[in-house]
Design a protein around this nucleic acid. Structure first.
Length: 366
DNA sequence: GTTGAGTTGGATAT
DNA sequence: ATATCCAACTCAAC
């Protein structure tokens, strides 16, 4: 027999005061008229409705494979979009699990974890479990499963990324969707997380994690930090040579750039030949599209080719140090490495027009 | 020490 | 759409 502790009497709220429910304006949401509203409505009824819709397409459930979704789909997102409802407890994860099992019973041929729809629920519990068992899970320092990497602490780079001003339309469109919807497709999250950390800007994953924590409607402490470590090659995943291209990754799903045109309307008239790299468009084309690069839309903040090369070199050096010191890397060790790397890698400090100098040649590994 | 797997890379070929 | 190469990591199993 379970004994439930008695609840405090109604009205006893300690030292806190009961106040009226604040208005949207008081919460800082001003001038929302005319803005695109997020497509999420709160509550269990809405969550169950979405669950039923997702589950009713049994063929879709049975053949679901996470890596195959289309991150540029926004009129009809490629996943269930149930994450906000799971996060707030509007939909029971166990009920969702059971619904998927029922579909599998009726459809013997179905995908399997980790890529299946059921697998996605397992990943959720995976992150809860490892986060529970790992001291300092949400930070790099003192976190045994986290590679110690000399990320830079550049607020300008972070701000440009957060404010959707990197100059890469695919990245900026995703960050705009984050601001407007509080949600984007899983692979879109991968692209911007990779870009901020190990792919281009080499900014600390904790900074990006904090931005997601604030802006995502489905942000979850364990899943968010876990995935940022994953994407930054700090833990779980280590193939740092696999970098998402901020140009070609989106293009292969959405060659016309409809996703970009929707979330970055300043680029809506840019011809599709240039929409992923508008800085390469001739001035006449920019003029006709009413979007001058450097004036109406920013120039790319880094050259992806040289920035990603530098990032790979930095990761290789950091991994080497972690290996040598058996994961016990001091603050001072990281500082020394950072100074060494700053001397050889220059793409982030000298943006787009500079090219990696001879100093960027690959370091010898011992 | 070697081998193979690892939810989601890119570029190029057909 | 699928195959192959590129470049190359860690970790577990043997």
């Amino acid at each position: 027999m379970t004994i439930f502790p008695s609840l405090p009497s109604v009205g006893d709220v300690g030292s806190s005061q009961i106040v009226e429910v604040p208005t949207l304006e008081e919460l800082g949401y001003v001038d929302i008229e005319g803005n695109e509203l997020p497509p999420f409505r709160g509550g269990e009824s809405e969550g169950l409705k979405r669950l039923r819709e997702a589950i009713s397409n049994e063929k879709w459930v049975a053949t679901f494979e996470k890596p195959k979704g289309d991150p540029s789909a926004f009129l009809r997102p490629a996943t269930t979009t149930l994450s906000p409802y799971l996060k707030f407890g509007c939909v029971s994860s166990r009920y969702f699990y059971q619904c998927i099992q029922d579909v599998y019973t009726r459809n013997k041929k179905h995908t399997s974890p980790p890529v299946s729809l059921l697998g996605q629920l397992l990943w959720r519990d995976f992150f809860y479990t490892v986060a529970f068992g790992t001291p300092n899970f949400d930070q790099m320092r003192g976190n045994k499963i986290c590679k110690q990497i000399p990320w830079n602490d550049n607020d300008e780079l972070l701000t440009a990324w957060r404010e959707a001003k990197t100059g890469y339309p695919w990245i900026d469109a995703i960050m705009t969707q984050l601001h407007k919807w509080g949600w984007m497709h899983h692979l879109a999250r991968h692209c911007v997380a990779c870009f901020l950390t190990r792919g281009d800007l080499f900014v600390h994953w904790e900074k990006g994690r904090d931005v997601f924590e604030r802006l995502l409607i489905d942000s979850d402490w364990a899943i968010n930090s876990g995935n940022w470590m994953w994407l930054s090659c700090s833990s779980f995943f280590y193939q740092y040579n696999r970098i998402y291209s901020p140009i070609s990754f989106g293009k292969k799903y959405d060659p016309n750039g409809n996703y970009i045109r929707h979330f970055l309307p300043i680029l809506k008239d840019m011809p599709k030949e240039y929409i992923y790299e508008p800085w390469t468009a001739p001035l006449s084309v920019q003029t006709k599209a009413k979007c001058i690069i450097g004036k109406d839309y920013p120039k790319p903040m880094v050259s992806h080719d040289s920035a990603s090369k530098d990032c790979k070199q930095k990761l290789a050096a950091a991994y080497e140090l972690n290996k040598k010191l058996n994961g016990v890397v001091s603050e001072e060790d990281l500082k020394v490495l950072q100074r060494k790397l700053d001397a050889t890698c220059d793409s982030v400090l000298n943006p787009v027009h500079s090219h990696s100098s001879s100093g960027a040649k690959r370091q010898r590994r011992s």
